[in-house]
Amino acid sequence: MRKLLNVLYVTSENAYAMLDGENVVIKEKDNTLGRFPLHILEGIYIFSYAGASPALIGKCVEKNIDMVFCTPRGYFLARPTGRTQGNVLLRREQYKIADMEKLKTEISKNFILGKIVNEKNVLSRMIRDHENRINKTDFEDAITILKNMIDEVQRADNVESIRGYEGVAASAYFSRFNDMILRNEEDFAFNGRNRRPPLDNINALLSFVYMMLTSMCCSALETVGLDPFVGFMHTDRAGRKSLALDLIEELRPCLADRFVLSLINNGVVNGNMFEKQDSGAVIISENGRKKIQQAWQNKKQEKITHPYLKEKIEWGVLPYAQAMLLARFVRGDLEGYPAFIWR
């Protein structure tokens, strides 16, 4: 199992990351902001237009250190991948499955069943923990819809139908999302999902966390030898990491969404950390990103018991565990892909 190490976040807008021996050095003009040994890092996220030196990029690719480039405002720009690696036989099997409607449908079912069950469990946990602060009937009605969609997905015989049922489930789940915000409701009122660009604080927060989780899933897939660009439920599109988007589905409710809610309900974030641009887009300030990233690092260190592997692992290792199970299924070592179910 992959060891969970540190992720270095470079958030200063003018910072430049460079290689010095076996260390990454962060500089801003003539000032050295920090020096970190590469062997303690599993990822480097750079929120700076200055970027990084080619030598550092090459070293990160060589050492399989995840490197992600974003704008200072948190929009994803690029992620170097280097030479294509991994088991060519595994990828050939992946490409075959992507062209086989029956197998593609079966694995898409598991991705979405995992997502809907986890959405249901998030709502059920809210009833259990905060029954006196919510309208229990509204949550139970949403849970009923999610249960119905679970049945529909299990009966589905094509990917298009699965996408439709997933959309109905997502609508029911997000209809109760605003009720799960128990603090600072004025700054974080949720009136529906919007993106590209996000138009309010909570959607900016969701998009930022989804971006970090998608990058983790992409790295996990490459680590086990799968092609993150060829998915089963998400169709191929130039530049889109379709398989990473498949893998993230089951992890959104239990990992990303609950993390966002905890940031708000525990007072880690507030309205002062967000800026509205003339275009209407909402962005997260540098200080806000730092706090979110630190909290994300802490969340990744928390341990859970994996329901299929029956092992204690960190949340941060979960995408790698699921990628490993997915690779086993593609190779034919497992009869089906076991989606992660949070309880």
Rank of each mutant, 00 (worst) to 15 (best):
E13I: 14
N14P: 00
M18W: 00
M18V: 05
M18Q: 11
G21K: 13
N23G: 00
K27F: 04
I40N: 11
E42W: 09
Y49W: 14
I57R: 13
C60K: 07
K63T: 02
G74V: 07
A78Q: 09
T81G: 15
G82Y: 05
T84S: 13
Q85A: 14
G86E: 12
L89D: 10
L89V: 12
R91G: 00
R91A: 06
R92E: 15
E93Y: 05
Y95T: 05
T105N: 05
S108F: 06
S108A: 15
N110G: 05
N110W: 03
I112E: 05
K120M: 12
S124V: 10
I127C: 10
R128F: 10
H130T: 07
E131R: 14
E131P: 00
R133C: 08
D138W: 01
F139D: 03
I143D: 03
T144A: 10
K147W: 03
M149T: 12
D157I: 14
E160M: 10
I162P: 04
E166T: 06
A172K: 01
F177V: 02
D179H: 09
E186N: 12
F190T: 07
R196G: 05
P197A: 11
L199M: 11
L206I: 15
M211Q: 11
M212E: 08
T214A: 11
S219H: 12
E222M: 11
V224I: 14
F229K: 00
G231Y: 07
F232V: 04
A238Y: 15
R240I: 02
K241A: 12
K241Y: 13
D246S: 02
I248H: 01
I248C: 06
L251F: 12
L251A: 10
L251V: 10
L255P: 00
I264A: 01
I264C: 03
N266H: 03
V269A: 06
F274S: 05
G280M: 04
S285L: 00
N287R: 13
R289T: 06
Q293D: 10
Q293A: 09
N298W: 07
E314K: 12
Y320C: 04
A327R: 03
R331C: 08
E335T: 12
W342M: 09
W342Q: 12
